[in-house]
């Protein structure tokens, strides 16, 4: 019998994998992808609970998360493009201008 808990566990796994990915990978694009993974994990939670609690609100939230994710990717990738154009093959570690 499928329960929301399954969704939550799956979400937790994906979220953790995504988090580790953000921390470990150096390519900004891949880091972005890992962030997408985490967002999807959250979406899974929302969907699972919307189903489990029989509330459409969870789905609405997912909808908004997707919109925001899309916006984020658009801007984020634009930033990556701007950076990459100035320095080829830069990794996230190379960009530490904001160091204190």
């Amino acid at each position: 019998m499928l329960t929301p808990t399954y969704y939550l566990v799956l979400s937790a796994l994906v979220f953790s994998i995504g988090a580790v990915g953000v921390l470990v990978r150096r390519n900004p694009l891949v880091m972005f992808m890992c962030v997408e993974l985490m967002l999807n994990a959250v979406n899974l939670t929302f969907i699972g609970l919307a189903w489990g609690l029989n509330d459409i609100g969870g789905q609405v939230s997912v909808f908004f998360v997707m919109v925001v994710a899309a916006a984020e990717v658009v801007v984020g990738l634009a930033i990556v493009v701007a950076i990459m154009r100035r320095r080829d093959g830069a990794t996230a570690d190379d960009l530490s201008v904001l160091r204190g």
Binding site: T3, S16, L53
Partner: peptide, 24 residues
């Protein structure tokens, strides 16, 4: 990552979702 996973699982375990799964 492992800690987050463990803690999330622990929370899921302790949270106990009580709603009635079904068709939304």
């Amino acid at each position: 990552g492992a800690a987050i996973l463990g803690l999330l699982l622990a929370i899921i375990n302790s949270a106990g979702i009580t709603g009635v799964p079904g068709n939304v």
